[in-house]
Design a protein around this nucleic acid. Structure first.
Ligand SMILES: [Mn+2]
Ligand SMILES: [Mn+2]
Ligand SMILES: [Zn+2]
Ligand SMILES: [Zn+2]
Lengths: 147, 147
DNA sequence: ATCTTATTGATACTTAATCTCAATTGGAGT
DNA sequence: ACTCCAATTGAGATTAAGTATCAATAAGAT
């Protein structure tokens, strides 16, 4: 019955995964992750740069992009395309699970916690009073070529 | 038991959806869609520009971006984030259904035709001898605010 | 406290995407 | 088939996003 992990928990866990993978937990990486975890997610690189600057803890452009790339490789965050323009990054919880509905008209994003596609879609259509007309499912894993 | 629609079919159908939505079927739009439908998908804006030029049917940069945006709004194509860099566009069949597995190591993309998540994931792990550790599911629809 | 190496960030640069506007064209109407 | 016009295109200029370089810094191991 996992409630959506609260921000602090998500943040700590993300840091752990970073550390466990053998990378240093630097100020830039910690700040970026904190920003992503706190702000209801879905931020672009530019959003991160601005928020860091606002918080008087600026992160260099290069470092922001490097960190977003690194965290993506590690599966800690994931880029998505919501509105248009630059990718929006979300923090992936350790169970590697995230789903949302994107309205094709207004681009509104409705976060969802349920899962199990077929019944799931039926249930979601009722619960959110929305007609779901399509989906993109991205599964992440490690293929046999990569052992 | 829908076999994956062949390219020509997918292309014709995409054109229909474009026309039905009230937009003109221009050379630029037709060429772009043809390129996307033929080339096993997953093309960036730059890929499209290059392929059009190679085929001696160049499409202006502005038009490529405009068309990609339009087709995305109409739900005919969809940007995804595969390797890194610019978004990769795929053509969404009329049933609005597409799924692939992305290897977290080599970024290899394995296209899949099955569906129904939970059992699906188990089956896929066996079939492709891959361990699936996470997923992102994007559902598309029209929210109640948009009637 | 010292040391080593990963990481940072300023700057310069390249590539992706947007804007503007005159020229073109799809397709509706006759 | 011909006319007409709003929708669309594309060249070129501009802005934004992302990358490369490299000397300076700091995380964390010993
Ligand atoms: Mn979301
Ligand atoms: Mn695919
Ligand atoms: Zn909406
Ligand atoms: Zn692989």
């Amino acid at each position: 019955m996992s409630k959506p992990a609260d921000h602090q928990q998500l943040f700590e866990n993300a840091l752990d995964r970073l550390r466990t993978s053998g990378y240093k937990v630097t100020a830039a990486r910690r700040d970026l992750l904190k920003i992503l975890c706190q702000t209801g997610d879905h931020l672009t690189s530019t959003d991160v740069i601005e928020k860091a600057a606002q918080a008087k803890r600026p992160i260099g452009r290069a470092s922001v992009f490097r960190t977003l790339d690194l965290l993506t490789e590690l599966g800690i965050i994931r880029p998505t395309y919501l509105h248009r323009g630059a990718p929006n990054y979300i923090v992936m919880p350790e169970n590697g699970h995230h789903a949302h509905i994107i309205c094709r008209d207004c681009s509104q994003v409705i976060e969802i916690n349920e899962c199990s596609i077929d019944e799931m879609i039926d249930a979601l259509e009722v619960r959110h009073n929305i007609e779901i007309t399509g989906h993109l499912l991205e599964l992440y894993g490690k293929c046999k070529d990569c052992e």
